[in-house]
Computed example of a mutant assay.
Amino acid sequence: MERVIGFIGAGNMGGALLGGLAREGLQNTVLVFDVSEQALANAVSLGAEGASSAAEVAMKADIIVLAVKPQFYPDVLPQVQGNLRKTAMVISLAPGYDIAALKKVLGQEQRIVRAMPNTPALLGEGMTSVAFSEDSYEVEEKEAVLQIFRKAGKAVEIREALMDAAMAAASCSPAFAYLFIEALGDAATAMGVPRALSYEMAAQSLLGAAKMVLETGKHPGELKDMVCSPGGTTIQGVIALEKAGFRAAVMEAAKATLDRAQEMKQS
């Protein structure tokens, strides 16, 4: 069944999702509005149709993706309100706006989906958590929503109560990984490796380690033990990380993102 997919916002994240949908050719009509003429032109170059307003997208689309930053929601939501089809599904990408808050504005009968992608979606390697409102959905309707994000990486359905925790585990965590790559690159540079090569080595090693977890199905601790030979070099590095509180620091960072996400919630 063909559905009209509407995007309100075609910046970094909206553009990444559009790029994912267009990678194998658009299978549905895609309607896009963005206040930026350049962002809109980029979307049209991918095969999307340009819209004149957010209200037009709301009126015509079966699935509406709100891909604007949270600070613009107070401006955008009134344009969407009252223009939606009763059967439409509205997907919010904004932290701070839970399903209850969105229903309060858009209508209690409106079907709302919360999704939290991350920036690697730009390269088709995203990780998106998706939570559906407690309304009635056909199996193919949920699949249509999930496919928007699976075209840009992986997507999993979770309970909304876990959304803030999922944000810490996936949406925020690329920043933690970049810090690790930068620090490891600095260390290698200090040891004499050219800086560009230092970052390449660190990034590729992290990519490979992530693939080992995903593709072998082994516990990260088991994979770590495979690298740590008795009396060898790696175990000494692990000991140094433990002394510095590495794992505790990562856990505290995740908790800090969770706390901030809950502080941002709209009433």
Rank of each mutant, 00 (worst) to 15 (best):
A165P: 04
L17Q: 05
A202R: 03
S53D: 03
E242Q: 13
L93A: 01
C172R: 10
V227Y: 08
A115K: 06
L197P: 06
M116A: 09
R114F: 05
A152G: 09
G14E: 03
P74F: 03
Y137V: 00
M191F: 14
L241R: 13
R195C: 13
Q266H: 12
Y73K: 02
V130I: 11
G237K: 10
T119F: 05
D225I: 07
M127V: 15
E141Y: 06
E160P: 12
Y97T: 07
P70K: 00
A10T: 11
N12E: 14
E141K: 05
Q81D: 12
L179V: 13
V250E: 06
E37T: 15
M1A: 14
L258I: 13
E37C: 13
G237P: 10
A244K: 07
A170P: 00
G208S: 13
G232S: 08
E134V: 14
L26R: 00
L123C: 07
Q147P: 05
L84G: 09
L46Y: 05
L241G: 10
V105G: 11
M167Q: 15
A196W: 03
E160R: 14
P174Q: 00
Y199M: 02
A165I: 07
T29I: 12
Y73C: 01
V44D: 00
L18Q: 11
S129V: 12
G11T: 01
P194T: 02
R114K: 07
D62A: 02
S52Y: 04
E109P: 03
K243A: 14
S205C: 07
D164V: 02
A253C: 01
A177R: 13
P117V: 03
F176V: 04
D164E: 04
G232L: 01
D225W: 10
V57L: 09
A256R: 14
E263S: 10
K224L: 07
A51D: 01
E49D: 04
L162Q: 14
D225V: 02
M264E: 12
R114I: 04
V193Q: 08
F180S: 04
L18R: 08
A48C: 08
F149I: 09
A209H: 13
A115N: 06
P78M: 11
P74Y: 01
E157L: 10
N83E: 08
L258K: 03
L146V: 02
A168K: 04
M89S: 14
L122P: 08
N118Q: 06
V80M: 01
A51G: 04
E24R: 14
M89H: 14
R195P: 08
L162I: 12
G96P: 05
A67E: 09
V193D: 02
D135T: 03
N12C: 12
T216V: 05
I63T: 06
H219R: 11
L122K: 13
M201D: 11
T257S: 08
L197Q: 10
I91W: 06
S171K: 01
L206K: 05
F132M: 01
A203V: 10
F33C: 02
E141F: 10
I99L: 10
S53E: 04
G9D: 04
S129W: 11
